[in-house]
Simulated assay, not measured.
Amino acid sequence: MNRRQLVKFAALTGVAGIGAGYWALPAGEVPGPLSLPGAQQLLIGLRDKPLLSLKGWSPAEVFNHCAQSIEYSLGGYPTIKPAWFRHSVGPLAFGAFAARGAMRHPLDEAIPGAAPLSAPATQALALERLLQAFADFASHQGELQPHFAYGALSHADYAQAHVLHLYNHLSLIRLA
């Protein structure tokens, strides 16, 4: 199989997988409105509440991870997928998530090249970091950096991606 056939095969199987995956996404209740203010209000409601993770990362690590994603959309991701991916499979995946109003991805997978999720270490400080990242993103007027997988996104699409990303991670967080 030559390179052109391989790329074509990867794109077609990716499209099929994304199409099938669309129907496997959760369709139930989301924890809050699918908007920046809705996500911010939900997070404010978590202040001073004891939280636990059902599996994987601690709540502090989840908040740091989600904050990193938002911060990288403003300043640039440390590592990005190849251009062919960011112009084919990545946007198709985001389109499926956006259409469904839900995201599903590995909840223990760090952003490629990202710093460790250990700072800040406390849940309270990590939550404040995340709230600040959302506030910085909401007020940002300049150009946004390409997403490491989805490629170039508008401010509105990035806002939706950040909210869906947060809500996917919050599916494993409960009040202690």
Rank of each mutant, 00 (worst) to 15 (best):
163 V>N: 08
149 A>W: 15
140 H>N: 11
153 L>T: 00
130 L>V: 04
78 P>E: 12
32 G>E: 10
38 G>T: 00
42 L>Y: 15
25 L>P: 13
124 A>Q: 09
126 A>I: 02
115 A>K: 12
49 K>W: 04
102 A>R: 09
105 H>F: 15
38 G>W: 09
158 Y>I: 03
85 F>P: 10
150 Y>R: 01
137 F>P: 09
35 S>E: 06
48 D>K: 02
126 A>L: 04
107 L>V: 04
130 L>K: 04
58 S>V: 03
103 M>K: 10
158 Y>V: 03
146 P>R: 00
161 A>E: 12
88 S>L: 07
26 P>Y: 10
111 I>R: 08
44 I>L: 15
86 R>Q: 07
142 G>C: 04
147 H>N: 11
72 Y>H: 09
37 P>A: 02
33 P>E: 15
64 N>R: 02
71 E>W: 11
100 R>F: 10
123 Q>V: 05
92 L>I: 03
102 A>K: 00
65 H>F: 10
149 A>R: 08
72 Y>A: 02
70 I>Y: 12
52 L>Q: 14
31 P>L: 02
63 F>K: 05
107 L>R: 03
46 L>K: 01
121 A>E: 12
103 M>S: 09
136 D>G: 00
127 L>H: 03
33 P>T: 09
84 W>Y: 10
37 P>T: 00
124 A>L: 07
102 A>H: 10
34 L>K: 06
95 G>E: 09
127 L>V: 00
58 S>P: 07
78 P>I: 08
98 A>G: 00
152 A>L: 03
55 K>D: 14
78 P>H: 10
66 C>F: 05
149 A>Q: 11
146 P>W: 10
124 A>E: 13
35 S>K: 01
114 A>H: 13
155 H>W: 15
96 A>C: 08
106 P>H: 08
116 P>K: 12
64 N>A: 03
108 D>M: 13
123 Q>P: 07
135 A>M: 10
94 F>D: 01
122 T>C: 03
161 A>H: 14
79 T>L: 12
48 D>V: 01
73 S>L: 11
53 S>A: 06
116 P>N: 13
108 D>E: 15
119 A>D: 15
134 F>Y: 15
123 Q>Y: 05
35 S>W: 08
51 L>K: 01
96 A>I: 07
158 Y>M: 12
83 A>F: 13
55 K>T: 14
108 D>Q: 14
147 H>D: 12
36 L>N: 03
157 D>N: 08
92 L>V: 00
65 H>W: 12
82 P>Y: 13
115 A>C: 06
47 R>C: 05
92 L>D: 04
104 R>F: 14
142 G>I: 08
162 H>N: 07
42 L>A: 01
132 Q>C: 05
101 G>I: 05
105 H>E: 14
142 G>Q: 12
163 V>S: 06
91 P>Y: 10
63 F>M: 05
136 D>E: 11
37 P>N: 01
81 K>Y: 15
160 Q>R: 13
96 A>W: 15
161 A>M: 12
116 P>D: 15
125 L>D: 12
110 A>W: 11
28 G>E: 11
41 Q>H: 10
119 A>I: 15
152 A>I: 02
117 L>S: 00
110 A>M: 12
111 I>H: 11
72 Y>F: 15
66 C>N: 03
125 L>Q: 11
36 L>Q: 06
89 V>F: 09
